[in-house]
Amino acid sequence: MDKPEKKGNRRDFIFTASYTVGAIGIGATIWPLIDQMNPDSSVKALASTEVDISQIEPGKSVTVLWRGKPVFIKRRTQEEIAEAQSVSLDDLPHPEKDQDRVKNPEWLVMLGICTHLGCVPLSDKGEYNGWFCPCHGSHYDTSGRIRKGPAPTNMEIPKYAFVDDNTIKIG
């Protein structure tokens, strides 16, 4: 009785080992076919953009393209800053302090993409004097935070830095 059982075990080991090697081989073959669809080197190379902001008047904004996406650079007025800072966090679906969303309160730099399904919101529209997305009706405030509508989160803040007083580097 012992002998055939032992033989069986050896065979099981060979089966398991070959299935494992086969699975790893198939996985290693499929992975390049899947990964080729991820952003390629040329797309990743366009990762940063420098913007001259010296011409922007208070209350105005510019939209620049970064990684194929619009970035809003808004020079906020004192009233807009005050409005953004005075909101109680309890009123926000996605609570974030305005101070945490800006490096310099005068300049709001954010991805101009509605976090619902990716449309570009319209500026100076909506019930909170910020942005309004025409696709499915999301309202954002002067800090780009979601206040009303189907979008789940605030508009995203990209990585950026002030190179000097007149230049912002995004990415």
């Binding site: 899947i34 669809m37 991820n38 952003p39 390629d40 990684r67 194929g68 996406k69």
Partner: peptide, 13 residues
Amino acid sequence: VTWLWGGYSVDNP
């Protein structure tokens, strides 16, 4: 979504 797009937005890829 990034994988589907092949980038950070809908574009040539």
